Computed example of a mutant assay.
Amino acid sequence: MVEIRIEFDDDEQYERLKELKQHHGLTWKGLVLEGEKRVLEEAPDRQ
Rank of each mutant, 00 (worst) to 15 (best):
E12H: 08
D10H: 06
G25K: 02
E12M: 09
R46P: 14
D9E: 14
G25Y: 05
Q13P: 00
Y14M: 11
V39Q: 00
E19Y: 05
Q13D: 15
Q22N: 15
T27E: 11
L40D: 02
Q47C: 10
L33E: 12
I4N: 00
K37C: 07
R46Q: 14
F8L: 06
L17K: 00
R38P: 03
E19R: 13
Q13W: 15
H23V: 13
Q22A: 07
D45N: 10
L26M: 13
L26F: 11
R5D: 01
V2R: 09
K21D: 07
K18G: 03
W28I: 12
E3W: 05
D10N: 14
D45P: 11
P44D: 00
E7A: 14
R16V: 06
E15H: 13
V32Y: 13
V39W: 02
K37W: 03
W28P: 11
V39N: 01
Y14D: 05
H24N: 06
K29C: 14
L26C: 03
Y14T: 07
L26K: 00
E7F: 11
K37V: 13
Y14S: 04
E42N: 09
H24Q: 09
E42K: 06
L40F: 08
A43L: 15
L17N: 02
G25T: 01
E12S: 12
Q47T: 07
D10P: 00
K18I: 04
L20M: 10
E15L: 13
R16N: 14
E34Y: 01
D11F: 10
E36V: 13
L33W: 07
K21Y: 08
L31V: 02
H24L: 10
K21R: 12
L20E: 08
R5S: 04
L20N: 09
K29V: 12
R16T: 04
E19A: 10
L20H: 08
R38N: 06
R46A: 14
E36A: 12
E7K: 14
E3K: 09
L26D: 01
E36N: 06
L33G: 03
D10Y: 02
Q13C: 14
D9A: 13
G25I: 01
L26Q: 02
G25H: 02
W28G: 04
R5Y: 06
V32T: 04
I6Q: 01
M1R: 12
K21W: 09
K18F: 08
I4A: 04
F8P: 00
R16Y: 09
E19F: 10
H24I: 08
E15R: 15
P44R: 03
E41L: 10
D11T: 09
R46S: 14
E36S: 08
R5I: 09
L17Q: 03
D45W: 08
E19C: 06
L31Q: 00
L26Y: 07
E7V: 13
F8A: 03
E36L: 12
V2T: 10
I6R: 01
F8R: 02
H23L: 15
I6P: 00
E42P: 05
K37Y: 04
F8K: 03
V2E: 05
L31F: 01
T27Y: 07
H24W: 04
V32C: 13
